[in-house]
């Protein structure tokens, strides 16, 4: 199981890199969907069953499909525009990566252990995280209204 998870996280990183590097927009959206699915598998490996299913349902099923539809609607060739500031970006990100990676090498904590079952997460969302949960519902409602307002046609 451990080696399977190592392979999956390697594939997640490779496909995330391909999201950035791929010239074809549809290819990079598909790589993105694949890495979402891999992250869902990582969630399942630490016992977070509910989050794994939600990750696949929302990220691959909703976000990924919306990305694909928008690529179809907006880009005629399906190709993306060139990148800008490649090398300075690598330097900046490499520096930041060194700063994050250096202290985290020494972390040897165990992960997992708690079972993220549906009942437990539901109880948590309606007790400790009740106020964020309600705020999220308002945010989602305003996002729906805002998106339909932004995308409406003037000439109707």
């Amino acid at each position: 199981m451990q080696s399977l998870m190592l392979i999956i996280s390697f594939l997640v990183l490779i496909s995330a890199l391909m999201v950035i590097l791929s010239e074809d927009m549809v290819h990079s959206a598909l790589f993105l969907i694949f890495s979402f699915g891999g992250v869902g598998a990582l969630f399942l490996s630490v016992g977070a069953q509910f989050l794994g299913a939600i990750q696949i349902l929302i990220y691959t099923g909703a976000v990924g499909v919306m990305m694909l539809l928008m690529i179809y609607f907006t880009s005629k060739e399906g190709k993306s525009i060139k990148r800008e500031g490649k090398y300075s970006g690598i330097v900046l990100v490499g520096l930041l990566g060194f700063l994050i990676l250096y202290p985290s090498i020494s972390i040897t904590r165990e992960v997992g252990g708690t079972k993220g079952l549906t009942q437990n997460i539901g109880r948590l969302l309606f007790s400790d995280l009740l106020i964020p949960f309600e705020v999220i519902s308002i945010v989602l409602l305003s996002a729906i209204i805002g998106a339909t307002y932004i995308i409406r046609r003037e000439d109707h």
Partner: peptide, 29 residues
């Protein structure tokens, strides 16, 4: 399970995403 490969995965994802936000010019990307 050891935390290390989760850490590596998440650091890698955050750096790749950051590089994309800095350098890419297509808003969907």
């Amino acid at each position: 399970m050891i935390a290390f490969h989760f850490l590596i995965t998440s650091i890698g994802l955050v750096l790749i995403g950051l590089y994309g936000v800095i350098t890419l010019r297509h808003p969907i990307k």
